[in-house]
Amino acid sequence: MRLLVSGGAGFIGSEFVRQTISNHPEDRVVVLDKLTYAGNVRNLDPVAQSANYRFVEGDICDGTLVAELVRDVDAIVNFAAESHVDRSLEAPGQFIQTDVFGTYVLLEAARASGVERFLQVSTDEVYGDVEEGSSTEHDPLRPRSPYSASKAGGEMMVWAYRASYSLPVITTRGSNTYGPYQYPEKIIPLFITNAIDDQLLPIYGDGSAVRDYIHVADHARGIDTALRQGTAGQDYNVGYGGATSGGEVADLVLGALDKPASLKQHVRDRLGHDRRYSVNSDRLRGLGWRPLVPLDHGLRETVQWYRENEQWWRPLKSGEFWEFYRRNYKPLQADAAQGL
């Protein structure tokens, strides 16, 4: 296939590109990425010299550029998105622009050129807070943050183009993802890099919010499976099937680095914090996909990667990163913390 991978310099997108170049050498891959703070062309260094790879710096909201690139591809895989819930609470308009309008621009180009596949990479957060059980692809979307609402909005555009124009679309909804090359504002790389430097690990509220953590290699394989073997018009959940709280993540990281529990710090809870996400991935498993990396093993490997690649993450934790960090994480007063 000839693929356009938008957002391919980001965390999950770059893993997908690296896997595609390695596992499907007959494919041609064009990466389109705006290189915002979370996009890093260095994530693609392992494939930079590949003959079937091309990088284009640009914005998915640029209709002229997108139309030019889409003319020469068979499929689009859209990873491009603003993706951090905390930042969406601070500046929701940016998320609407990229996640909804940008998706529309890609869909218009896909419709005009007649691509064979359009895969929209979404998130399990569109299901909202899941008190019990696991979300299936038939469940209604109930987003509760500007981020998840913008991702749900992008999905609805995809559905509209499927119904109105018979565009061959697929959506994947992945659970919380971790692994190498993840920008250090997300919980696992933040905890790892802070702990390496003996800095406090900010845990929201009482630390009981639960997530299903999947390794980035498993997530990218799931997307590839949906792209190549999935049915057009279907949605596919991509989850590991675990349940780990923020407090437990902190304990795992501190244990892997042999750091003291005194580095844990409870901070003001996130606004509208969803307490639990869980997805049922049976539909994707029916295509032969399985997650292969257990959390304890994957997390220790991830810890080791960040220890060995300080030259990658240290420059990212400077300037604007710390300005946002100080705005976002407000330590609880001692009396409040004792009541947790």
Rank of each mutant, 00 (worst) to 15 (best):
G174F: 02
D124C: 11
V169I: 07
M156R: 15
G207D: 09
I187P: 03
Y104S: 11
E132P: 10
H219M: 12
R111N: 15
T98K: 07
A163E: 15
R117L: 14
T172N: 00
V169S: 02
A209C: 11
V210P: 03
R211Q: 09
S134R: 15
A110G: 07
V169H: 01
D124T: 11
T123G: 04
L200D: 14
F191I: 12
V158A: 00
E116F: 08
D129H: 05
L201M: 09
N194K: 15
Y161V: 03
D129C: 11
P168N: 05
S166W: 13
G133K: 05
L141C: 12
A195C: 09
D212W: 07
A160Q: 13
T98C: 15
D99V: 06
S122N: 11
G154H: 05
D212C: 09
D206R: 08
A112I: 10
Y178Q: 00
F101C: 06
Y178C: 00
Q182W: 00
H219R: 11
R111Q: 12
R111V: 15
Y147P: 00
A163L: 12
Q199C: 13
P184Q: 04
P140R: 13
T98A: 13
R111P: 04
G153T: 08
S150E: 02
L200N: 13
S148V: 03
G207E: 08
Q120T: 01
T103A: 12
Y104Q: 11
G207V: 05
P143C: 11
Y165K: 07
G128N: 06
S113D: 07
E132N: 15
A112K: 15
I203K: 00
P184S: 05
P143V: 09
S175E: 04
G205I: 12
D218F: 09
R173M: 08
V126I: 06
V121K: 03
Y183P: 00
A109G: 14
I192H: 03
S166A: 15
